[in-house]
Design a protein around this nucleic acid. Sequence first.
DNA 1: AGCGAATCATTCGACGTCGAACTATCTCTC
DNA 2: GAGAGATAGTTCGACGTCGAATGATTCGCT
Lengths: 162, 162
Amino acid sequence: MRDSVDDFLDQWAALRSDLDLEAMGAVGRLLRLTRLVDKEVGRYFAEHGMERWEFDVLATLRRSDRPLTPKELAANVMVSSAALTNRIDRLAARSLVAREAVPGDRRSLHVTLTDAGRRLVDSTVEGHVRNERRMLAELDAEDCEELNRLLRTLVNTLEGGR
Amino acid sequence: MRDSVDDFLDQWAALRSDLDLEAMGAVGRLLRLTRLVDKEVGRYFAEHGMERWEFDVLATLRRSDRPLTPKELAANVMVSSAALTNRIDRLAARSLVAREAVPGDRRSLHVTLTDAGRRLVDSTVEGHVRNERRMLAELDAEDCEELNRLLRTLVNTLEGGR
DNA sequence: AGCGAATCATTCGACGTCGAACTATCTCTC
DNA sequence: GAGAGATAGTTCGACGTCGAATGATTCGCT
């Protein structure tokens, strides 16, 4: 079975047979697959009247099970702290999170989940994960494990130390 | 060996043991890994005085080995046609591509690589692929093949038909 | 204690992308 | 062959993000 990236690789092979097709293929598929997954995830949340970035922030707070500072949130969600200020503003306006003072350091603050925010995450996370599973449906249990093993290795490599 | 996504999964497991960790892990790693790869690729091109999007467009033209319409380019690069107009403008301003009339359809046009554009792609693609290989260095040949197999399956699934 | 460096969140300006509207051209049908 | 609808690329307005600058507070060193 071939995929669209194979076509892409064939084109390069015809012109520059010196290139490392295995590497190009892996990275190419990674990027393409992520775009497709992103789109599908976005579609799911849109159907549930939510945006992807809202879930990212709320879910990070939920799974951490404690208030987080904007800095911690930014690191988890992988956006700039400027973007986070904006996101917190909008979530707070809808009363899904609240800003609270952090005792002992007035530079910083704690972002907490409100009850409404927590209810919203809890009610969407299940369907979201089901949707993720559905996207992997073509992989049997063994393949899925193998995929996780390979990706884990790469994540570790690129995250540097750890 | 564990990675940062394992921590993330542990947090969910502690609170919601009903969730499908295998699926969350795979998708989570996919997204995280792509971010890391993106950053590294960006770093490489920045070092060579180039931006990622420039390479994307030029490389698509190069490997196609023929003039492409903006519509074809947009599909390959996965951005809107509006974004493509902007990119072509900027590449044309630097004389890396040229717009030419397409015979028989005056609505459309052909984007062609100039000699300078072609030289630029050819001189950077090699190092770029070497860099990609370097990111996969932890995987032996067999693992790399396996990764491509798994990703190919998923790309095919999510691309629908084909 | 006190002063400079470091750290934190926010604000600001610039930039790239998107979807929608727009113009021009082509195609299909009667 | 003429008109309706489809299709191509571009323009426009809105939006979210980023890096840099800002203001407030804390830490480290002597």
